[in-house]
Design a protein around this nucleic acid. Structure first.
Length: 835
DNA sequence: CCTGCTCCGTCGT
DNA sequence: CGGAGCAGG
């Protein structure tokens, strides 16, 4: 119900001139954000400002002098587009559901037909790595069990899913597979068991996570409130109603941006779109949200956001509003609405969440002593679950729905621990062109009042943060008791400067060019960042750890050469990145950038490969015996999705095609950094070896497949969850290869390459597990950046055993058909004694 | 003017 | 699911 903010399209910005403007939009815009402040007047009165005439809507807020574009952009918008890198060093809670769900797109048919796959994990992990790459510490939050309050919608969905499934099956039967897929996609349900597959991957990469007992939203709100995280990244934004302060929406993996909404900005805003939240309390804000309809309670017919707002504005409290509505008799207020409202409010306020520190369930907000509390409320906030089970749920070892031990639906999927490979090819992935700009260009002339944030949108949100704010505002406002990876202290200011230049450049461009796809200038700052981050001298816990650091130093030179080679290759391939004017504005030395950017990985991996089967690896002799637990962070900067590069490439090509400004004849000297080498460049790598980055990525892609083929051979090893020993790995891989050759035969060479890599990786990680990280030798060695976080879930290698006798023992087979938890079965005896 | 309805693209292959 | 367009009060 709470919505997102729309970005103002260029066209709409253009329309800001009264003459050519679209009046509706114009009105909303000037109402909201003019520096001069609102003009007031009596409702209904017409005022004339400049050449435009406006009608006053109600008693307070009103119209402004026509803004210039500059005025708008210099004022503080409610939603700001920010670079991911601005959040470097911060811990961000991430709603895993959406990522998982999107991940299922890539394997919808397999999932629907019961085929084993874990490909849906890849999407989420790529994004996790993307966050890590930007120095962000992700804290993944999973949805848990259903709340009674939402039961209704669940049944509905189930039904729709079944319908889609049936349709898909019939289409598939007719051989119309592509059409079938369309429906398969719609019937996929993300189950806790699927989430568990992602959890395994998160464990492998030491990413903090927690499974909420009930709703991820409430859990994330709690994490933010208790200072465990700095902000919340999600797609659906009910979060503000839960009292969240810093919400990040619409993560864009191509442009590496998010939309930031900061609660504290609300008060400072004047009537966004006619709604002024100035002086509104959280209570009122929440009331408005519930009144206008939320997940837990449908709205009174005819009451939308706007009326809810004005009613509350007038009557202050919900009780008064309901009373007034009933008196007037205009709206039909359902019987018991007020009670239902209170229940909904209770859910937002007191829903049960998991406290990772106390390792038990708590209320999102503690119930006050004086507050009335009854059975019904108790049921609505979610049943209490006794701590030991709650912990298992939170860690993913128990299914939050059935409360039974987690059923690993794909035990053969054993994500390996990523080695610290600072492959910053991400930087390359960030290409100047915007792939998806078009879609966002389109803005309705009239902002419809369908969502709360739409109101905020009355003020155009600018594309980049205001110049004044080089950091998200909550960076300083949020106390961070949590251990976070330190930000890049050195070079940060310069980064800010660079970013400011970007802003300036963008603004300038924006006013000049309207139809051309916007060229991002941020690539330079990106590189700049990377430079500082991979510089061994700079204390950069996030990027390098242990052997990573030493390797980084030793392999710098070869890497550089490697890169040059690829630049040339790329050039031949007519894929040179023609940098726009924007880059010229930056004063960063290209060489420096490359140096920083270059990943030592290739040469390292290559020279190191022969040793992989040996436990003696440089890694173990980490030059950082101290607690610089950046390993995790390093893992973070793993390769981005190839697809992203592809998409970016495409966009860039398109951009180039559009603007025929002659960038094409630029010499090589203007090429700061070549685009990611084409995949075929593997063969061109010559003496320095194949492009392992690509292989590496392929490995990721193939993992599922390979695992798939080796179900049987791996079953035992998998179930033990122990370190993978070289022996086991070899055996398994050989068998796996055999199977694979029989089944899939796309490109023998490639597959073999991958298989080798896989094998090596497995072996390596086996040793890693056994020795480097191993239990006995150096306990403190394992670089868990999340170690201090309450929920570090790696070292759980033992199967969960439940001793609760009162837990329902319904046999749990596959994803579907989980016994739904009812208060009766789920409440553990004596649990309610808590309250 | 506001609400509520419907349709459509999302994400990826 | 959010956004866009449209109809009706």
């Amino acid at each position: 119900m709470l919505p997102t903010l729309v970005r103002l399209s260029k066209a709409s910005r253009k329309a800001l001139t009264p003459k050519q403007g679209n009046k509706d939009f114009y009105k909303g815009t000037r109402q909201a954000f003019l520096p001069g402040g609102p003009r007031t007047g009596a409702p209904g009165k017409h005022v004339v400002k400049g050449k435009a005439k406006y009608r006053l809507v109600d008693e307070q807020v009103r119209y402004f002098v026509a803004p210039s574009i500059e005025d708008i952009e210099s004022s503080q918008p409610i939603q700001v587009r920010r670079e991911l890198s601005e959040y470097s060093g911060q811990t961000i809670a991430v709603d895993a559901y959406v990522w998982l769900h999107r991940g299922t797109y890539s394997c919808a048919t397999e999932l629907a037909t019961g085929k084993r796959t874990t490909r849906y994990v890849d999407y989420a992990m790529h994004r996790v790595r993307l966050l890590k790459h930007h120095g962000i510490v992700p804290y993944i939050v999973f949805d848990g069990g259903p709340l009674p309050a939402k039961k209704g919608t669940e049944v509905d969905r189930k039904q729709r899913r079944d319908e889609n499934m049936a349709r898909a099956n019939s289409l598939a039967a007719q051989g119309k597979h592509s059409q079938a897929r369309e429906y398969y996609v719609k019937c996929i349900d993300v189950t806790p068991q699927m989430a568990f597959q992602l959890i395994k991957a998160l464990r492998a990469e030491s990413v903090a996570y927690v499974v909420a007992p009930y709703e991820a939203d409430a859990q994330m709100a709690y994490l933010e409130r208790t200072g465990v995280v700095h902000g919340i990244l999600t797609e659906d934004s009910d979060l503000l109603v839960f009292g969240c302060k810093n919400v990040l929406l619409k993560m864009d993996a191509v442009e590496n941006t998010v939309i930031s909404v900061v609660r504290s900005d609300f008060g400072s805003l004047n009537s966004p779109g006619g709604i002024s939240l100035l002086g509104w309390t959280d209570v009122q804000f929440r009331a408005m949200a519930i009144l206008s309809g939320c997940d837990y309670l449908p709205s009174i017919p005819g009451i939308g956001l706007k009326t809810a707002w004005s009613l509350l504005k007038k009557h202050k409290t919900v009780e008064n509003v309901v009373r007034a509505l009933r008196m007037e008799g205009k709206k039909d207020v359902p019987k018991g609405y007020l009670e239902a409202f209170k229940l909904a409010e209770t859910v937002f306020l007191h829903q049960r969440v998991y406290d990772p520190t106390q390792e038990m369930l708590v209320h999102l907000t503690e119930v006050q002593h004086g507050e009335e509390w009854d059975e019904e409320k108790e049921a609505h906030v979610g049943s209490y679950i006794e701590p030991s089970l709650a912990k298992k749920i939170a860690q993913g070892d128990a299914c939050p729905i059935s409360l039974l031990p987690m059923d690993d639906i794909n035990p053969t999927f054993i994500p390996r621990t990523l080695k610290p490979i600072p492959m910053n090819i991400l930087s390359v992935a960030r290409t100047p062109a915007k792939g998806k700009g078009k879609a966002r260009m389109h803005l309705p002339e009239k902002a419809q009042s369908t969502s709360i944030l739409n109101f905020f949108n009355a003020k155009p949100s600018i594309e980049l943060k205001p110049k004044s704010a080089s950091q998200p505002s909550f960076v300083h406002s949020t106390p961070a008791p949590v251990r976070v990876v330190a930000g890049r202290s050195s070079g940060k200011r310069t980064l800010a400067e660079v970013m400011d230049q970007e802003v300036a450049a963008k603004k300038k461009k924006r006013s000049d060019i309207d139809d051309k796809p916007m060229v991002s200038t941020s690539i330079s700052s990106k590189f700049f960042r990377d430079t500082s981050s991979s510089d061994p001298k700079c204390k950069q816990p996030a990027m390098v750890l242990g052997e990573g650091a030493s390797i980084a130093g030793s392999s710098r030179l070869p890497s550089l050469e490697w890169e040059k080679e690829n630049i040339a290759a790329v050039g031949d391939d007519d894929d040179v990145v023609g940098f726009s004017e924007a880059e010229e504005e930056d004063e960063i030395d290209p060489v420096t950038q490359e140096e920083g950017y270059l990943s030592p990985t290739e040469s390292f991996r290559r020279s190191d490969t022969p040793e992989l089967s040996s436990p003696v690896r440089p890694r173990r002799f980490s030059p950082k015996p101290d607690e610089d637990d950046n390993f995790g962070a390093d893992v973070l900067s793993s390769p981005p999705v190839r697809r992203e590069r592809w998409r970016a490439d495409k966009a860039r090509r398109k951009a180039r095609a559009q603007e025929k400004h002659g960038h094409d004849d630029r010499g090589p000297s203007t090429v700061l950094v070549a685009d990611t080498p084409p995949r075929k460049s593997t063969a061109q790598a010559g003496a320095l070896g194949p492009d392992l980055r690509d292989v590496f990525e392929d490995w990721n892609d193939l993992t599922s497949e390979i695992d798939e083929c080796c179900d049987d051979s791996l079953e035992s090893a998998a179930s033990s969850r122990g370190p993978i020993t070289p022996e086991v790995s070899m055996e398994f891989d050989i068998e796996g290869m055999a199977d694979m050759e029989d089944e899939i035969m796309p490109d023998e060479e490639e597959i073999e390459m991958c298989a080798i890599t896989v094998r090596e990786e497995r072996v390596a990680s086996g040793w890693w597990e056994k020795y480097a990280r191993g239990g006995n030798t150096r306990p403190g060695k394992f670089p868990v950046s999340t170690r201090k976080l309450p929920l570090p879930m790696k070292d759980r290698t033992d199967p969960v055993s439940f001793d609760q006798q009162d837990t329902p023992r319904t046999p749990q087979t596959r994803n579907h058909n989980h016994p739904r938890r009812t208060p009766e079965t789920s409440v553990h005896p004596g649990a309610s004694s808590k309250t």
